[in-house]
């Protein structure tokens, strides 16, 4: 199989929701930073977040001057009749010298492949391609150079996959632990009328409400739906549908039907991930603050450097930054997670 021998090892890929975050990430030791434009072309289309074209251009210059890469997240699905917005994002980013474009939609991938054949394409986790053939499909059809894997595979499965696909692998190692297959979730649209795939939002803040009663019990709601309730001693989470508590005839009390509010932290598995052939480690969180970015990126820089040098790693100090103060190794550690 054709393989790129210059493939990277241990690349640290970090999130940036704002230009200040991007500079923070680069300064804290990120090898690559991913970010998006201020519109529906990216899957974190949140108010006050993301980059204007001018800011993107400056961001690329800032990163390149310091030896870091910038990746554009153009990973939503353009609705028919509106593809120009995505094409413009691709054209502009390419003109700015962006290092890769992260895509999910076949139409967007085809546009880059045909109009900007030199532009490196990464397959977004939003494309939902966890199997050998699915990944090969995108590699062979659109020249994809790297796949971002969904957080559903065990390390032996990743290792097996890596041997049989012609591209690099990027894995999420820290941050929000999404449960639903990315790119195939309309839960938010069902509750709010805004689509994760087309509008780039998940639990949009405009539909989020926190209601506190006199006893300091907190109810979190998305639109008309109650997502969770917390007593005064409990830590609330952001109301995403897949992190909520619900009632079912099978259970006597409300339960986390999908997953508890918990964050992914694979620090301890880092040596095994490197052995499995994972090329790049991705930190989730373009919606988080630059102080979060600074703390997480510098900790992970240190961790990766330690593993590369054969030393022990520990990232317990990141616990305060995890959702609800809880962490998991999710599917990576055991099949029993499924």
């Amino acid at each position: 199989m054709e393989r790129d021998d210059t493939a990277v090892v241990g690349e640290l890929v970090c999130p940036a929701g704002t230009p200040a975050s991007l500079r923070t990430a680069v300064d804290a030791g990120a090898d690559a930073v991913y970010c998006g434009f201020q519109n529906a072309t990216n899957a974190r289309n949140f108010p006050g977040l993301n980059f204007t074209p001018e800011e993107m251009k400056e961001a690329v210059a800032y990163a390149h001057a310091r030896g870091a890469k910038v990746l554009l997240a153009a990973n939503t699905f353009p609705p028919a009749g509106q593809t120009d917005l995505w094409k413009r994002a691709v054209d502009e980013a390419t003109a700015f010298g962006i290092d890769a474009i992260i895509v999910a939609d076949i139409g967007v991938a085809q546009y880059i492949h045909s109009q900007h054949p030199q532009q490196r394409i990464h397959l977004s986790v939003q494309a939902g391609a966890p199997s050998i053939e699915a990944i090969k499909y995108y590699c062979e059809e659109f020249g994809v150079k790297r796949v971002v894997l969904p957080r559903i595979l065990t390390i032996p499965e990743i290792s097996d996959l890596k041997r049989q696909i012609p591209c690099e692998i990027e894995c999420f190692v820290f941050g929000n632990h999404g449960l639903m297959a990315e790119g195939r979730c309309s839960l938010t649209n069902y509750a709010t009328g805004l689509s994760t795939n087309m509008d780039g939002v998940c639990s949009p803040a405009q539909d989020v409400h926190y209601e506190e009663d006199q006893d300091k019990n907190l109810t979190t709601k998305l639109g008309i739906y109650t997502i969770d309730c917390f007593s005064c001693t409990q830590s609330p989470g952001y109301p995403t549908i897949c992190k909520g508590r619900y009632l079912t005839p099978r259970k006597e009390e409300g339960y986390y039907a999908f997953e508890e509010p918990i964050s992914l932290n694979l620090a301890r598995l880092l040596p095994e991930l490197i052995k499995a052939g994972v090329n790049a480690f991705k930190i989730e969180g373009r919606q988080r603050s630059k102080s979060y970015v600074r703390d997480v990126v510098s900790s992970w820089r240190h961790a990766i450097d330690s593993v590369m040098a054969g030393d022990e790693v520990d990232l317990e100090n990141l616990l305060a930054l995890t959702e609800g103060g809880k962490q998991t190794q999710g599917a990576y550690a055991t099949k029993r997670w499924r």
Binding site: P150, I152, M180, L187, R250, K251, F258, R336, R338
Partner: peptide
């Protein structure tokens, strides 16, 4: 159909796992 997952939520509701 609004969402798919690698995890089985029917099994989870019965305190089981997919396997």
């Amino acid at each position: 159909g609004l969402a798919l997952s690698a995890r089985c939520y029917h099994a989870r509701a019965c305190d089981r796992v997919k396997d």
